[in-house]
Design a protein around this nucleic acid. Sequence first.
RNA 1: UGGGGCGUCGUCAAGUGGUAAGACAUCAGGUUUUGGUCCUGACAUUCGGGGGUUCGAGUCCUCCCGCCCCAGCCA
Length: 591
Amino acid sequence: MSAKGDTPEKGKDFIRQIIDRDLEDGKYGGRVHTRFPPEPNGYLHIGHAKSICLNFGIARDYQGKCNLRFDDTNPVKEEIEYVDSIREDVRWLGFDWDANPFASDYFEKLYCIAELFIKMGKAYVDHQSADEIRATRGTLTEPGIDSPYRDRTPSENLDQFRRMRAGEMKDGECILRARIDMSAPNVMLRDPALYRIKHADHHRTGDAWCIYPMYDFTHGLSDAIEGITHSVCTLEFENNRPLYDWCVDTLMAGLKHPELFGRHADIYNELAALPGFNQRPYQFEFARLNITGTVLSKRKLIQLVREGHVSGWDDPRMPTICGFRRRGFTPESIRDFCDRIGVAKADSTVEYALLEHCLRQDLNERAPRYMGVLDPVKLVIENYPEDQVDEFTIPLHPEDESFGARTVPFSRELWIERADFMEEPPKKFFRLGPGREVRLRAAYYVTCTGYEKDAEGRITEIRATYDPATKGGWSDDGRKVKGTLHWVSARHGLKAEIRNYGNLFTTDNPNAPGEGKTFIDLVNPDSLEVLPECRVEPAIRDMPAGTNFQFERTGYFCADLRDHRPGENLVFNRTATLRDSWAKIQKQIGK
RNA sequence: UGGGGCGUCGUCAAGUGGUAAGACAUCAGGUUUUGGUCCUGACAUUCGGGGGUUCGAGUCCUCCCGCCCCAGCCA
């Protein structure tokens, strides 16, 4: 009941409140069992992370269980590649499952339950075409029309259904339908399909089946089979809940008639022994996650990949788990984000700024600091001896000594950031300009004595003098230097490629493109900026791929998981910039 | 126009009839060898709107308005 430690008791989300109540009522004998049920037809994205954190988080908080169940009932859309990636992503997020079943594991049981429904008069085989069924389903305001096959006898239906399984019918020739109510105001209840014929190989069961159960039939019954107590899904399934209940209730009712199982006494015994027999699961729905500036629908993500707008599912601009991983996000930051956004029933769009905040907060604590110059321009220290080298020992983290320190060489010629120099700086500019003095981070104070430009007016070299008395970057003679610049020794610096990522879309809401447009029209053509000529300090040379770190004053970066080669080819992804109050000032004085 | 949901600060979101939490964002200061971090302060007389019940309503009743979901042999 109480939050751990000194964290203030935050109001629990409505699902946990329901669980608390169920626990008090003794509804499941103290059991809490959830599941995360992805269909293996795409990669997981941050919307899934919300669901994962909710379902696995509930299991953790209540000492319950959470299954990872693959909802693989449509063989033409599902692939083993996705199964592997989903497992990897769930683990990376920091969760582990209690069981990892596939709905396809239950095909035999589900088939048996379908026969049970038929014997109970709750399902029938309909030979109408898909078009006919659509035409007779009615509309939102008009009831549907009963199928001419609706009143076939159970034995006739049984015979037909067995022929379906035996492969005697072609795809689409007939389906098994629930016998509910063609005039139900909820369209979901107008005799929905339970089984369809698909002569297609399944990624796990191969050619063992040519009929496959539909989602609604499969999902609730799988929950019951696994003893799930709280089946948490998103809002769009709210209309399906009565059907979920119908399937589970019909099974419960059927279980009271062992004789209906005939030669399948073994399956009856198995089902009747399940915890779900007397403690049936209930479905609860919460609002799915939306984030500004991105899309979170599998269809759209797959389109971005297939049409080549991004390099793949793990493109660092993608809101997929693997995309965020490659970008340099930590699992902790994503979990923190999911904790903060809450769980409710109102449609909502969370600002990307919150995710970025969670990221920066985590990275600020854990990222070691280095110096790297993204857009280098030469700085020559005129009074620094040609052959001299200083070696500065600089802490890897300004607030945490346990990080230790690295050694950074300093010499006469340095690289500094082009943006750190202005020929005619405005008053609020604290950096280098003619005659100005700044601090080179942890090294010396330097004063600009001049600069050179090429024919196009581009700065080619900046000249300065240093003050040897300021070694280490400090002087206690009362001199004020407002600006501190990062730098890399030209002679010692390493070349690196840096990839800066911007918004994938040109608008905050790519889900609402204007008249006659699609979200693809809103893809930002400038969302990737590759800087192949960056210079970084030598301490980074052997950094392993996947390492998070900060380039001081610039941002958080991550050695790329695919292309970075320690010691050979340095490739860094910009995970996020640092907050930049200078950029704000620039905007203000620009106006 | 049938059914199912949802409307509390720019964005999320607590609140469960007793007098509007918190976070992000924003703005204003302070500290600072990262214009980072950190710290301080400001930020909903009002809960989609109107009636009503009540000593008391964001919470209850009622009418209205707006938004989302459903007519796949997808999940």
